[in-house]
Write a protein that binds this DNA or RNA. Structure first.
Lengths: 277, 277
DNA sequence: TCTTAGGCTAAGAAAAACTTAGGCAAGAAA
DNA sequence: TTTCTTGCCTAAGTTTTTCTTAGCCTAAGA
C-alpha cells in the first residue's frame, strides 16, 4: 500500500530540534555540541528549515547568529514542546526498566568518583549507568541525575597536592619540573601554591588532558599533582597516592549531584541520589 | 569537530511518532495511513523502539495490536507532547507566511467545491492551498481547516441525479445501463432511487473512482449520475449539467468546514472560514 | 598583523527510513 | 467446512536523509 499523495511531508523533526537548540543556546556551535553533531549539520538543518518556511529564523552575523523576530516569537513554543517530549521519553525509559538510573557526568568523575561507588549500588539492585557528557547543559534529556564539579560557594571540593607514596617525595622542596598539571584547570596550581605560601610558583611539568591519566602518572612517581580532592580520594584510600603537604586550597568548585528532572519520591533515581549525597 | 562519545543517541523521534499514532489510533495500519507510510514501516519503527527500550509497548494479537500496560501508561504524555509540537509548527508556518490558509480535504472536494471559490479568496489576499488527504484524521497537523463530507444530521448535502443537458435526457425512462456510479458511494443510487419511487432500481453502468471524472463523463452524455449536490453545483451553474428529475434524496452526509486547531480570532484561517461558511 | 571564533559550502559517506513482496493466523463470510 | 479478508510480520533492496570532512570567509580581539 503506497502513500497516495506524493508525500504529505510532516514537519522535519530533526531540523526543528536543531532550531530549538540553536535558539535556546544562542548559536549553532553549542547546539551542535548538545545534539552530538558537527556545526555543519546544524547549518544545513537551519538552511532546510528556513527554505521550506520561506522566512529567516536567524540573522547571520559574521561572529555568530541571533534569532530574528519570528524566531524569537516561536522559540518558546518549541522549547516547551521538546521539553515535554524529553520528559515523556525519560518517563518511558524509566518505567520500561525499573532500577535504571542514568547519571550524566564527565569521564573523569565517572571513573574516579562514581565508579568506586557503583558496586554497592549495583548490589542494592540499581542499574546505574554513567552517561558521559561534556557539560551539564548537554545532559538535557539524557540522564536522571547530573554529577559535576560546578563553580559554587561550598568548599566541598578543595584542591590538594598528591604524589606517589615514599619517604623522599613529601620532603623535597617544590620543584617546578616535578609537577603534573591538568589541562583546563590552569588556575589550580596557582591557588594551591598561594595557600601553601609560594605565590609565585609556576609548574613546568607535563600537562594531562585526563585526570585519571594524571593520577596514574603521579602514582608512578612522575610528579606532584594538584587536583580536586574528590577525584583523588579513591587513590588516596588505596594508598596508591599520598597528600605529602596536607595543604588544601579553595578550588571555587563544588561537587554537585542533582536531579535533572522531576523525580518521583521513591523512584530508583531518587534513592540513588539519597544514597550518594 | 567530531562528537566525542560514539553517539549520544537522542530519542528516535520518528519511531516515537509512530508509537504515538499507533497507540492513539489503535493499530499499525491506521497509523501508517496517518503518517503517509506503509504499515511495514510502522512495524519496523515499533520493533526498533521496543528493542532499544527492552520492553514491549504493544501486545501482538493475530488480528491487530493492543497497548501493553506500559504503553497505555505513557501514551498520553507523548500525545500531548506531539500535539504541542504540531501546534508550534503550525504557528511557525502561519507567522512565516501571513495570509496562508491550508485546507485539508479530499481531491474531489478540492477540485469541485473549493476550487471555484478560490479566486475570490485569492483576490482578498488569502493564499489558500488545498492539502489533499484521505480522511479527516490524516489532516492532523497538516492544515488549518478541514473540509469533508461527514456523516451528520443536516440535510445540507442532498443527493441529486445529473446528466448532460438536452431535451431527450430528462424525458427518458430510467435505464440501468445509462447510469454512472461512484466507487465508495454504493448506497447513493439506492437512496436516490427510493426517493424517486423506484426502490428496486440497480444501476449497471460504469463505476468511477473520481467524482470529477464521473461528472465529466455525465457532461459528455455518458449517463445519469447520482452525486452529492455540493460536488455538482459548479457544473450545474455553468450549464454543463442539468438536474433533469429535480428529485433530491437524503445522503446522510453534511458538507462540513471546521477549524483543525485553535484559530486566533482575526487570523487568515478564521477569516477564510467565515467567508466560506 | 595575526589569530581565533563562528558560520558557510560542496562532496562524498554513513545511517535511517521506506517500499515491495510474500507469509501467517484468526475471525468473517459463504 | 472452506474461503476470504484483515492486520501484522519478515527479508531484501532502494531511496532519502543526515552527517562528516575539508576548506573558505568575515570580523573581532590580542
Amino acid at each position: 500500500m503506497a502513500a497516495q499523495p506524493p508525500r504529505p511531508k510532516l514537519p522535519p523533526l530533526t531540523a526543528l530540534r536543531a532550531f530549538e537548540a540553536a535558539g535556546r543556546l544562542g548559536g549553532f556551535t553549542p547546539a551542535a555540541r548538545e545534539l552530538g553533531v558537527t556545526p555543519a549539520a546544524v547549518t544545513a538543518h537551519l538552511k532546510t528549515l528556513e527554505q521550506s518556511l520561506g522566512a529567516a529564523l536567524f540573522e547571520r552575523h559574521p561572529r555568530g547568529v541571533a534569532l530574528t523576530d519570528l524566531g524569537a516569537r516561536v522559540l518558546p513554543d518549541f522549547t516547551r514542546a521538546f521539553r515535554q517530549l524529553d520528559a515523556a521519553m525519560q518517563r518511558l525509559e524509566g518505567e520500561a526498566t525499573p532500577g535504571l538510573v542514568r547519571i550524566a557526568t564527565t569521564a573523569d568523575l565517572a571513573q574516579l568518583w562514581l565508579s568506586p561507588r557503583l558496586p554497592r549500588l549495583r548490589r542494592a539492585g540499581f542499574q546505574v549507568i554513567p552517561v558521559p557528557v561534556e557539560s551539564p547543559g548537554a545532559a538535557r534529556g539524557l540522564a536522571d541525575l547530573g554529577l559535576f564539579l560546578l563553580p559554587g560557594a561550598g568548599a566541598e571540593a578543595p584542591l590538594i597536592a598528591v604524589s606517589a607514596p615514599g619517604p623522599a617525595a613529601g620532603l623535597m622542596a617544590l620543584d617546578p619540573a616535578f609537577t603534573l598539571s591538568l589541562a583546563g584547570a590552569a588556575g589550580d596550581w596557582a591557588r594551591w601554591a598561594a595557600a601553601a605560601g609560594i605565590p609565585a610558583f609556576r609548574p613546568r611539568g607535563p600537562v594531562h588532558g585526563s585526570a585519571a591519566l594524571a593520577l596514574e602518572e603521579a602514582a608512578n612517581g612522575a610528579g606532584l599533582l594538584v587536583i580536586a580532592r574528590p577525584l583523588a580520594e579513591a587513590a588516596l584510600a588505596q594508598g596508591r597516592l599520598i597528600d605529602p603537604y596536607g595543604i588544601a586550597a579553595e578550588s571555587g568548585l563544588t561537587l554537585a549531584l542533582w536531579p535533572l528532572r522531576d523525580l518521583a519520591p521513591d523512584s530508583a533515581p531518587a534513592q540513588v541520589l539519597a544514597a550518594l549525597a
